Amino acid sequence: MPTTATAAILREVNEPLTLEEVQVSDPAEGEVLVKMVGAGICHTDATGIDGTIPLPLPSVLGHEGSGIVEAVGEGVTDLAPGDHVVLTFGHCGDCKYCSRDRPAYCEMFAPLNYFGTRMDGTVTMSQGDEDVHGCFFSQSSFSTYAIALATNAIKVDKDLPLELLGPLGCGIQTGSGTVLNALNPQQGDSIAIFGMGGVGLSGVMGAKLAGCEQIIAVDINDERLALARSLGATHTFNAKEHKDLVWDIMGVAAPGVDFALDAVGTNEVIRQALEVTRSPARIATVGFQGLQHDITIDQGHLLLGRELCGVIEGDANPKDFIPALTRHYADGEFPFDKLIKTYKFSEINEAFEAAHNGSVVKPVIVFD
């Protein structure tokens, strides 16, 4: 029997989400039905609302969910009703890259995360005869109940604060994973991180876990920079106050940092991330400024041994990485909860506004 749920529905681009009753289907083969407890709000959700990512409408967003397994579909053996799970991005589990522990590069990533339907074209949500597209990132967690794939529902310990864990499925995984997995600094290395949103601040925490000696945080918001220091940054720079930002950073870490992370995505910041590094160095860009976004860099930086790479979802295998982050959190080594402010489900549009105006780093919806 379908499950009645309340979902936040996007019916028109750039319009507020509306809370409406929907019917959620029973879990199909390889799926689980999850009663949602919390769901983080991420920049990617906002790009769905403003049309930067084209979505079929009506749609239910949400891709940083956490909840309790209510039922499992045929063939699901590693999850059971009552399990606590964090929902992450959809991946098939079988393709070339999934089998190499790089599911963020799954060959089916686009249809599993953006098309709004299962692979067979069916939907997980409906209102009478109307289809509601509820497969955003194989979860659509802005709903009191959601269907997820067993492959993107990650079991976590029941003694953790489940309502806060959702952001581990995307934003926090992206920032910390990009540092720990893609850049992989060693004890004593230096790193510069540009942009102190949820991703950049998670990168700061990841750099501290890695044992970086110099962790340089850059932003234009002094409150965010103060938060970065509390999370492990050793130096902070307000980019508005430093006309010679590159030279100022290199003065701290001469002849340049070993690694850099761009969590902004503008041409100027990507160039700065390259320019503050030594040779050789590795620079990762994860800031999103649209599906088509031209940048200009000096090839000389690359010819001298610097590598510039893009990273999806922190280059993480969530099955291993999310439990590892929860262990660090339990040990007091990864205080991601300092980024979070919770909102009621009925306040979801206010939560988006708080994320948009920068007053909150990571809003999290908590369901009744």
Rank of each mutant, 00 (worst) to 15 (best):
M125T: 10
I68S: 08
L245T: 00
F259A: 05
C135S: 13
G256F: 03
E20S: 10
A273S: 14
A260F: 03
C309P: 05
E15C: 13
R282A: 12
D337C: 04
D368G: 13
S190L: 12
L303H: 11
D368P: 15
P58Y: 04
L17W: 01
N14A: 13
Y105A: 14
A28K: 05
P167E: 07
V246D: 05
L164I: 10
A324Q: 15
G177V: 07
D258R: 04
V69E: 08
A226D: 15
F115N: 09
A182K: 15
E20C: 06
D368S: 13
Q127I: 14
E20V: 12
F345D: 08
T234I: 07
D244A: 14
G290L: 04
G251M: 02
S141F: 02
G232M: 05
Q289C: 11
K344M: 05
F194T: 07
Y114G: 07
F137I: 05
V76P: 10
R306L: 12
F136G: 03
T52I: 07
M119I: 11
G51V: 09
F109L: 15
Y343M: 12
G175A: 07
H328Q: 13
I348E: 02
A46D: 09
S143F: 02
P58C: 11
Q173V: 08
T342G: 14
P363D: 01
I322T: 05
N267H: 09
F321Y: 14
E20W: 10
S359W: 02
D294N: 13
I216S: 06
A324I: 00
E29I: 04
L160Y: 13
V264H: 03
K155C: 14
A351S: 13
G30F: 03
G188E: 12
V199S: 04
V85G: 08
R224Y: 06
P161T: 10
V34H: 01
R229L: 04
L57W: 03
G310Y: 03
R306W: 10
L183K: 02
K35G: 11
P167N: 10
L302M: 13
E213P: 01
G40Y: 00
G134M: 12
P111A: 14
S230I: 04
V269A: 06
P16F: 01
D219V: 07
V37H: 11
I295D: 08
G188I: 15
I216K: 07
L308A: 10
A192T: 15
H84E: 05
Q299Y: 11
A182V: 09
L79F: 08
N349M: 13
A46V: 08
A330G: 04
L261R: 04
Y329L: 09
P58F: 06
L225I: 06
H242G: 01
A281R: 02
V37P: 01
F367I: 09
E29F: 06
E70T: 10
G265D: 06
G90F: 07
I193C: 06
P58Q: 15
L261D: 01
D131Y: 04
I340M: 09
